[in-house]
Nucleic acid binder design. Sequence first.
DNA 1: AAAAACTCCTATTAAATTAGTCGTATATTT
DNA 2: AAATATACGACTAATTTAATAGGAGTTTTT
Lengths: 151, 151
Amino acid sequence: MIPKRSKYAIQALKCLAKVYRDKKHLSIAVIAEQEQIPRKFLEAILLQLRNGGLVGSKMGANGGYFLIKHPDEIVLSNIIRLTGGPIALLPCVSLNFYEPCAECPHEELCALHDVMLEVREASIHILSKTSLADLILREKKLFRKLENKHK
Amino acid sequence: MIPKRSKYAIQALKCLAKVYRDKKHLSIAVIAEQEQIPRKFLEAILLQLRNGGLVGSKMGANGGYFLIKHPDEIVLSNIIRLTGGPIALLPCVSLNFYEPCAECPHEELCALHDVMLEVREASIHILSKTSLADLILREKKLFRKLENKHK
DNA sequence: AAAAACTCCTATTAAATTAGTCGTATATTT
DNA sequence: AAATATACGACTAATTTAATAGGAGTTTTT
């Protein structure tokens, strides 16, 4: 399970992606209300995303946050790593949060390690081919699909 | 990340799988020492596995735990679900621990839901094709591989 | 210049989950 | 009966995650 933090981050970034082409920025308060995220919690998350280089901010009245990268370039694995932590199921197969297993004398000999590596690869493959732009596009498609059903 | 519980469970079951054909049973104490798992913690885990129908137990002197199913039939997804909980990255795509997202008005319209479903399917596919027997076989192969390297 | 609308930053608290422990009852073998 | 196991419920500790509080610093609007 990814933490709520990460889910909130994805939601917030999706909002920002939707106004990207207009070069608009959105304030914490606006995003928080739109996405039903606790204001102060969202604040911390956006700060994290800023430090991670995904978003920029503008201070002062009429300020807010905006995407630095194109919505095509921001992928889910990226967001989750910045906010959530490991995607891998075990520390010994995590790229960014690696820790050896206490008991395992040789990682090379551990079959579980191997299997968990496979799982990680499969998960990351999907999560890093899906960008914010993809999410939005996909949502439009889902909407049209549902519309047609009701006709 | 799966909890330690689940990793301990896999280790313990692997031990039991290794003595399966001899119809032997192992005591908590023996497994705990062999695998460096806190004794009492392992006790709780084995109980969980027993309630889940994976192992049986025999009380009294010379008692212990043993596999009920064949090592071929016990797969990782099974073990993790019994001890750890969800494999899915979000509650809304979990088979056994499903909970709807608070905000999502229509799950059918949520692209994230879709992506996370894909991830779950990919993970479960791997985890449920890998059995205890596979793990052991795989470990033997890895060992031989390493041996050949050193020749 | 002052007020309003923002972000920025640090610290704290609250809640939930996970890890691990203790004591005792109960069953089985020797 | 003594020794060796599991069974079980209650409890504690540690860690992580979620959320809140308060105010300092910036920029825009009026």
